[in-house]
Every structure is written in structure tokens, then in C-alpha cells.
Nucleic acid binder design. Structure first.
Lengths: 193, 193
DNA sequence: CCTGATTTGGAATGATCGGTATAAATGGTA
DNA sequence: TACCATTTATACCGATCATTCCAAATCAGG
């Protein structure tokens, strides 16, 4: 089995992400991770160095491959306002299905590790700021075409939206009733029109 | 030293809360807890039964003595709209000071334990629903006196407010810039007038 | 069919986990 | 002062923690 890796690194990272996502960083033991990743101890420490480094790798991968990709996907074939609405609808619709009540990986990690882990905190803050920037761009574009009212300050509104984004993800994970999530998004739509 | 407890149970719970609040449930070891509570193992298991039972006790105590008390305090000498504004201002002002960047104990626990701990989930859901009810009452009262616009649905708005509440607490713990927190609250004030 | 670089599974590491057991210390009562 | 219920401090429990280590297994190049 020499000369090349016997397992798919990307697939292993994907599975590690799911374990961290479901139970959190501290509660995910190395045994849990190795089992879900389908590799053995030797391979793990050779390839990923440590549990902490694994988390950083997984987090950066999620940020690039999922968070940013979602923002781009939601813009396709949509006006700015439609893009914002579609994003928030997608967030609360993820509640249905087998992976429900998991919330957002980034938000979960932010709350658990940010205060004690500067490297995580930096990744989280850049991601949050980037989301806020995305909101700001959509709001400004929507205000120019007239589909979003201009009597609301774009900067303040984008800050409220990032707060709403994070809040919704917590409520989803905490198991809040679907009616509450839907109502919150509905109110948001009203404000944007 | 017999005949009566040698330590203040309430004081011990207060200190336990601070430890859970700072590092979370999983990351708080029994050694950490005993040290911060200032009691020994025997006394602990006699009085509090287990780490898990301690968390439930602390959580219920926080809910009754701090969350509910804050809602009542904020209503004193204030109109409904003023009460809502004062509450959100207080949330983001807690960032300053030595206990900053801790967020809300209830929100922290909700995200870490709700998916895996039904007892915690129930306490959290009742607390969130009670906060939402508080928001709804203030909105309706404010709409009757005319200080809050009636073109916004009170139910939807209260759902958005509980989402904002939770979201702000996460951003505080994640270390978001004060400007973002202030802007989000400012936007909220605009919507309420 | 060797050789040797590489990965494998799993044993072993010391530390720490939550929780229990116990014996010494305590101080009001008799 | 002898008694005794109670709390104290600490030794100890098996389990599990993240990590290290190593011999056995593997297979391309020679």
C-alpha cells in the first residue's frame, strides 16, 4: 500500500466535518473521528497532525467550499432582493431532512471555540465580515434598482442581517418551532420591500 | 463542622455558572468546577449529585434569577418601545468590562447541549418562547399607544426580535466589532419607530 | 524475488475524565 | 469526656482522553 495515500483525504475531511458539526469539537473524541473518517491512528497523525489542526483545516474548507459557494449560488438568476430572500429561506428550510437541527457549522464552532482559540476566532470573524459585505452589496444594488427601500441605512441593515443569519442558525439547532423561523424570515422580507 | 453545610450552596452555584459560562459544559472538568466552587468532591456529589444535574440546576437558576429578572427590570419606568430598546442596548453594552465576550449563558448552553440533551432543550425552548412572548406583549402595547408602527405584524416582529437577541449574543461571544453590534441595534430601533 | 520506502492496525503512553469509597476531623449533645 | 452524626480531604476506581510508537503488511522499482 505504499507510494500513494490509501484513502481519500477530501472524503475524510468531509466525514470529520460532519462529526464536528453534530457533536462539537470537545465532545468529538479521536475514536469518534477515526471511526467516522474510516482511517487509522497512524494515517491520521501523519496526514492531519493533530485534532486541533484538523479542525482548522475542516473549518477553512467549509468556509471556502460551502459558505462562499452558497453566496455565489444564491445570486444566480436572481435580483439582489431575491438573492437575499432566497438565502434566508434556504437557511430555515435546511431544517427538514435527516441533517436537520444541526445549524451552521461556522456558527457552532464560533460559539464553542472563538473565545479560547484565536486562530478559529480569526477565521470566524473574516467569514462573518464577508457575509456582511455580501449583504451590503445586495442591499445597495437593490436600492439602486428600487426594489429595496432607500429609507433604511444600508450599513445598519447589513449588520442586522448578519445578526439575523447567526440567530436563525442557533434557533434551528436549538429546535425552535418551524413557525417561529418562518415568521422571522417573513418579517425580514417585509422590511426589504 | 457537622450539623449544617459548611459552604454557601447559592454561592457555589454562582461560581459553577461562571465556569460553565466561560468554557462550556464539556470543557469544564470536575476539577475546574470544584476549584472554582471552592468545595471538595464529597460535598459536591452529596449536594449536587452529578455534573449533569449541576448544569440543570444552574440553568434553571439562571433562567429564574437573571433572564426573567432582566425582563422585569427593563420594563420599570419605561414605555413598551423604550423597554425593548433598553433591553437590546443592555445586551450589546455588556461587551465592555471584565466579563465581556461571554455572550448569554442560555444561548451558549442551547447551542452546545440542546441537540443531545432533551432536558436542557426543554428549558431552553421554554425560555426562548417566554422571551418571544415578552417581545409580543411590548409590541402590542406599543402599537396601542402609537409609539410602534402598526403596519408590522406583531407576531412576525416578535419572532424576528428573538432571533436578533440570540444572534447578538453569538456575535458578542465570537468577538464581533462593537460597531457591528451597535449598528444592528440601531437598525432595530429604526424598525420599531 | 528481493529491497526499501510507506502505510497499516493496534499496542502502549501518561494524563485526565466523572464518580465512589473511606478514614480523619469536627463540634454539638449527653 | 465519651459519643456520634456529619463533613471534610484524599486515595482510588475503571474508562477514556489525545498522542506516540512500532512491528507487520504492502507493493513499486530493480
Amino acid at each position: 500500500m505504499p507510494w500513494e495515500k490509501q484513502f481519500d483525504v477530501d472524503e475524510a475531511l468531509e466525514r470529520a466535518k460532519n462529526t464536528f458539526w453534530t457533536v462539537g469539537y470537545e465532545a468529538a473524541s479521536m475514536s469518534d473521528l477515526l471511526k467516522s473518517m474510516g482511517i487509522n491512528r497512524g494515517s491520521f497523525y501523519d496526514t492531519f497532525k493533530s485534532k486541533h489542526d484538523l479542525m482548522l483545516t475542516v473549518l477553512r474548507r467549509y468556509d471556502a467550499n460551502e459558505r462562499r459557494v452558497l453566496l455565489e449560488a444564491v445570486k444566480l438568476d436572481r435580483t439582489p432582493r431575491e438573492a437575499l430572500v432566497a438565502l434566508f429561506r434556504a437557511l430555515v428550510d435546511d431544517t427538514r431532512g435527516p441533517l436537520s437541527h444541526q445549524g451552521c457549522f461556522l456558527v457552532n464552532v464560533a460559539l464553542e471555540l472563538s473565545p479560547s482559540d484565536p486562530e478559529v476566532a480569526e477565521i470566524v470573524q473574516i467569514a462573518f465580515a464577508d457575509n456582511e459585505q455580501f449583504f451590503l452589496e445586495q442591499i445597495r444594488a437593490g436600492q439602486q434598482t428600487g426594489e429595496i427601500p432607500t429609507d433604511l441605512g444600508a450599513e445598519e441593515l447589513s449588520c442586522m442581517l448578519i445578526t439575523q443569519y447567526v440567530g436563525l442558525m442557533v434557533l434551528v439547532r436549538a429546535g425552535s418551532p418551524q413557525t417561529v423561523l418562518d415568521a422571522a424570515v417573513e418579517q425580514l422580507e417585509k422590511i426589504l420591500s
